[in-house]
Computed example of a mutant assay.
Amino acid sequence: MTDDEITDRLAALPGWERDRDAITRTFTHTYHECVHLAMYVAAKAREVGHHPDMHITWQRIRFVITTHDAGHRITVKDFELARHIDAIAAGHGATPVAG
């Protein structure tokens, strides 16, 4: 994807930010619920065949998405997975962290 395409897609996904060749978003919840959220996202990732990196710290979970098999570049698959993550996080009552 071109830089302009990535910028346009990010505009349609409030809260997601570009971090070099990945898109990222952080949510906050209790530690236990962050772990629970990670499990639900992992199940969806397995279903769609595209996996984010997940970083869990005290009451925060950060998702980092890049397409590994495209040379660690941002692709349409990353934005599709980001939409799934947003829906799952909303369903779990996770609060987005402002960038």
Rank of each mutant, 00 (worst) to 15 (best):
M1E: 13
T2R: 15
D3G: 15
D3F: 12
D4K: 12
D4M: 10
D4T: 11
E5W: 02
E5Q: 11
E5C: 08
I6P: 00
T7D: 07
D8L: 15
L10H: 03
L10I: 04
A12P: 02
A12F: 04
P14M: 12
P14F: 11
G15P: 01
W16R: 03
E17A: 12
R18T: 04
R18S: 01
R18P: 04
D19C: 06
D19T: 05
D21G: 14
I23C: 00
T28E: 07
H29T: 10
T30V: 03
Y31Q: 05
H32C: 15
H32D: 14
E33T: 15
C34P: 03
V35G: 11
V35C: 13
L37H: 13
M39T: 09
Y40P: 08
V41P: 04
V41E: 01
V41F: 00
A43I: 09
K44S: 05
A45V: 02
E47P: 07
E47Q: 12
E47G: 12
H50W: 11
H51R: 07
P52G: 05
P52A: 06
P52N: 04
D53H: 10
M54Y: 00
W58P: 11
Q59T: 00
R60N: 08
I61D: 00
V64K: 07
I65W: 00
T66V: 08
T67I: 07
H68C: 14
D69T: 10
D69V: 10
A70L: 15
G71T: 03
T75M: 00
V76Q: 02
K77Q: 01
F79R: 11
E80M: 14
E80L: 13
A82N: 01
R83N: 00
I85Q: 02
I85S: 01
D86Q: 13
D86L: 11
I88P: 03
A90L: 09
A90C: 07
H92T: 07
P96D: 05
P96N: 05
A98N: 14
A98Y: 12
